[in-house]
């Protein structure tokens, strides 16, 4: 109970803020619609209304407030409108329908998972190389850092176009962009983790005349696990962002990124918000899954 109350308080505050913002965001379009339907609005001049502040318009036309929550194409949809759209596009549509968010979500998720797997594998391999090889330590890390300073929005279209020109399209280019974003936290976390054992623990292995291999499997790798899982949580969320961003220049209206893009083309803010909420829930689920895997792994390590 002592946990539920603060969580609910924060959620309630967010919804209150959201509902409070809706009339101000939607008042201009609502008034235009109401005027067209014959209602008397102040001021009645559309040009004057365009230049007026939203605050003033809401207070002078308080009768219009309920209508701002029921717009067909609101600038800011109310939470219940998003919830209704989510319900209609997940539960009420067939999974194979192009209007189903589950369909689009799976397209994004498959690219995310493939990219995350590639990124994690690459990240771990790079970290192992960096820790064991001085030359790699000095050469790879600066490039890894530089790679993350390039905005993903700038590099994603290039990757898509280049790969498309050699005939690679669909899942793979998106997965590569996902991997591009998710390998970095894994490299950083894993390097830190593999270097976590202190000089004394390394000396101890030396007194046993342990090989470098044994040092890796018995000490460095288990010591790095908490770091790895912290990185994986960041990495999987980054992989999802990568997959969504990769869907924007892909042109097709497929995937959650595609839904957001078509939503913005046609002014369907509700559709954008639904895709956004769906992506957020997906990310949370992925992070939770990794947390679960972490618990399982650390528990199994205990039994060794």
């Amino acid at each position: 109970m002592h946990k539920v109350v603060p969580v609910l308080t924060v959620v309630a505050a967010m919804f209150a803020l959201w509902y409070a913002a809706v009339p101000f965001m939607n008042v201009k379009e609502t008034l235009t619609g109401l005027e067209r339907a014959g209602a008397v609005v102040t001021p009645d001049n559309p040009i004057e209304r365009r230049d007026a502040s939203s605050f003033g318009l809401v207070f002078r036309n308080s009768f219009a407030i309920p209508a701002t929550y029921a717009q067909d194409r609101p600038r800011l949809p109310a939470p219940h409108q998003v919830a209704q759209d989510l319900w209609e596009t997940t539960a009420l549509k067939k999974v194979s329908s192009k209007r189903s968010l589950v369909y689009h979500g799976w397209i994004t998720l498959s690219a995310t998972l493939l990219g995350f797997a590639i990124g994690t594998a690459a990240g771990i391999l790079l970290a192992v190389g960096i820790v064991h090889n001085r030359a790699m330590d000095m050469s790879v890390m600066p490039w890894a850092i530089a790679s993350q300073t390039i905005p993903i929005l700038a590099i994603a279209p290039m990757i898509i176009v280049v790969l498309n020109s050699i005939g690679v399209q669909g899942l793979i280019p998106k997965a590569i962009i996902s991997a591009y974003l998710s390998f970095f936290p894994v490299v950083v976390g894993m390097v830190k983790g593999l270097r976590a054992p202190d000089a004394m623990q390394l000396d101890l292995l030396k007194t046993y005349n342990a090989s470098q291999n044994q040092g890796f499997w018995k000490l460095r790798l288990p010591a790095s696990m908490p770091y790895l899982f912290a990185s994986l949580k960041i990495g999987v969320a980054a992989a999802l962002v990568g997959a969504i961003v990769a869907e924007l220049p892909a042109g097709g209206a497929r995937g959650l990124g595609g839904r957001m893009l078509t939503g913005s083309y046609y002014g369907q803010m509700v559709q954008i918000w639904s895709a956004l909420v769906f992506a957020a829930v997906l990310a949370a689920a992925l992070v939770l899954l990794i947390g679960f895997a972490q618990k399982l792994t650390l528990k199994r390590m205990d039994l060794s």
Binding site: T207, M301, D302
Partner: peptide, 15 residues
């Protein structure tokens, strides 16, 4: 030889 360090240095993930 066996070497005993100033700190026990036991692996926390092992019994």
């Amino acid at each position: 030889y066996g070497y005993v360090f100033q700190a026990a240095g036991l692996y926390p993930w092992r019994t």
